[in-house]
């Protein structure tokens, strides 16, 4: 059953349309990967899912009402000058409308549990300014999960990570998705990192979103049409790879 449906949605800022006629459906428990070049409107689409950008036209429908959502922003959005420990950030997220009283002494079991799941318990007393890029991204993921969301939206979480850290982080997302059955919407500009993870893909190109089940979208014909260049999709050792060129044996992109 669809959790989220977009029907003929135009998105943008002011009078400027960034994405036109978006049609998209996400099922409960899906792993949706959204891909597109910089400036293509990926973040705008994500913000519309989070209620931060309103549609200019069309309808965004959440089945059963808007669910609890967790948001992992791009790391650059977080200001490290804040004198905040990792534990403080997570506790504050849980008790954001309560008084000062539990700000310092009271331990929250949810926080400990999520720090163990994301493997950041050793960072609990570190301040944000002392974290590496990968550590910060894990902390932001923990912050998104600590409220036990039905949907987690991640906006280019691996954009500033090296290959190893990026792979480790994406594996963590996979594990969290499998364990908690949370619906995951992950934005990236790196299609190959998604092809073996996402159930559904949305590819944004020239202001339009092409979306569907991963196996439907990931065909040589589709990708060549969307990217307007010859691309070949192959299965190698059980993993899907994308190759440049229309015929066999050319350069690999994945």
């Amino acid at each position: 059953m669809n959790l989220l449906t977009y029907q003929g949605v135009d998105l943008g800022y002011g009078r400027q349309v960034v994405l036109r006629d978006v049609n998209l459906s996400v099922e409960r428990g899906d792993f949706l990967g959204l891909v597109g070049p910089n400036g293509s409107g990926k973040s705008t689409l994500v913000k519309s899912m989070l209620g931060l950008v309103r549609p200019m036209r069309g309808e965004i429908h959440w089945e059963g009402g808007v669910p609890k959502r967790g948001y992992v922003p791009q790391r650059e959005q977080v200001d490290p000058i804040w004198p905040m420990r990792v534990r403080d950030l997570l506790e504050m997220t849980i008790h954001s409308l309560q008084t000062l009283q539990p700000l310092h002494r009271k331990q929250c079991p949810e926080v400990r549990e999520i720090m163990e799941l994301i493997e950041i318990d050793h960072l609990a007393d570190k301040t944000l300014a002392t974290l590496s890029g990968g550590e910060m991204q894990r902390v932001l993921l923990a912050r998104a999960l600590v409220v036990e969301p039905e949907v987690v939206v991640l906006d280019e979480p691996t954009s500033a990570m090296d290959l190893v850290a990026s792979e480790r982080f994406l594996s963590l997302i996979n594990r969290m998705h499998e364990q908690k059955q949370t619906t995951v919407i992950l934005v990236t500009h790196d299609l190959p990192s998604l092809v073996n993870r996402a159930h559904r893909l949305g590819i944004i190109q020239n202001g339009a979103l092409h979306s569907g089940k991963t196996e439907e979208i990931l065909t040589s014909e589709n990708l060549s049409r969307i990217y307007e260049e010859p691309l070949t999709v192959r299965s190698v050792d059980g993993r899907t790879v994308i190759l440049h060129g229309a015929s066999s044996g050319e350069r690999s992109a994945s």
Binding site: L50, G51, L52, Y71, P73, V78, M92, S96, R143, A144
Partner: peptide
Amino acid sequence: LSSFDPDAARVQ
């Protein structure tokens, strides 16, 4: 929280 990361706070 709203001063630290307004978008995340609004989502919450």
